[in-house]
Simulated scan of single mutants.
Amino acid sequence: MKRMFLLASTFLMLSFLLADNAISKKERSYATKLLKDTEKAVFEQVKGLTPAQLMFKPAPDRWSVEECVKHIAASEEMLWGQAEATLKQAANPEKKSEIKVTDEQLVQKVEDRTNKVKTVEKLQPENIPLKSTEEALDSFKKNREKLIDFIKSTNEDLRSHIATMPFGSIDSYQFVLFIAAHSNRHTQQIMEVKADPNFPK
């Protein structure tokens, strides 16, 4: 009986320690809402588009709606894989001082399309194995659901796992925000394509 009590006490103590390191309710809510809202926006922008509209390119060097969706889906999978890899490594809270952006600043920076960025070769539409808009949307939805489930339930100390990105350092919580903001960045790109005067009616 005494041993059982000791085990129970240890379990409770560990639970409290985990809870102390977990993200706050406000942080969890903010990330979940951002993930859901940006997912919804992708589906809303492609809903009802014809094959001609999906394939239309405003210029030879511009992406079509379908290419944007393929990029969103492939990026979602790759970025989430990178985020998971960061969490599997030892926590490195000593690098927190290297983070130069707030959560809100990070989201705004990623979503700002006035700052043009060339993607890596792997994520160029022609190098993505997804065959259609439908296949890309299915992949995106599956990976986004995994990410939403993760952020709603995790007790990981996301703020103490720091990743070094090409634009600077972010913690693993910000990595999740980055993924959500990235999909919105390219949702805006889809809207730009649809706003082109030559977009098929």
Rank of each mutant, 00 (worst) to 15 (best):
A74L: 06
H182E: 02
C68R: 02
K116Y: 10
F175V: 00
L123D: 06
S97Y: 11
H186N: 05
K146Y: 00
W63F: 04
T50R: 05
K70L: 05
W63V: 00
A83F: 07
K26D: 12
R62L: 13
E104K: 15
S169M: 04
K142A: 05
I170F: 07
A90W: 05
S29V: 08
K25N: 11
A59Q: 12
D112C: 11
E145G: 03
L18G: 09
T164W: 12
N21I: 11
I148F: 03
T10M: 14
A163P: 04
V65W: 00
K146W: 01
K116T: 11
L158I: 08
D196F: 09
T86V: 15
N21L: 13
W80L: 02
K116Q: 11
Q89D: 13
K36W: 04
K96D: 06
F5R: 15
P197L: 10
T102D: 08
S9G: 13
E67V: 06
S64K: 02
G168V: 05
L106I: 09
A181L: 05
P166E: 10
I99A: 02
F56Y: 13
S153T: 14
A85H: 14
D37C: 09
F16Q: 14
V176R: 02
K57G: 01
T119H: 09
E67L: 04
Q174H: 08
L34K: 01
I190S: 01
H161V: 08
H186Y: 01
P166G: 10
M4E: 12
T154K: 05
F16A: 14
E84R: 15
E94I: 02
L177Y: 00
Y30S: 10
A22R: 04
P166T: 06
R185K: 06
E145K: 14
Q105C: 07
A136W: 01
V101D: 08
R185H: 00
L35K: 02
L79N: 00
D20W: 15
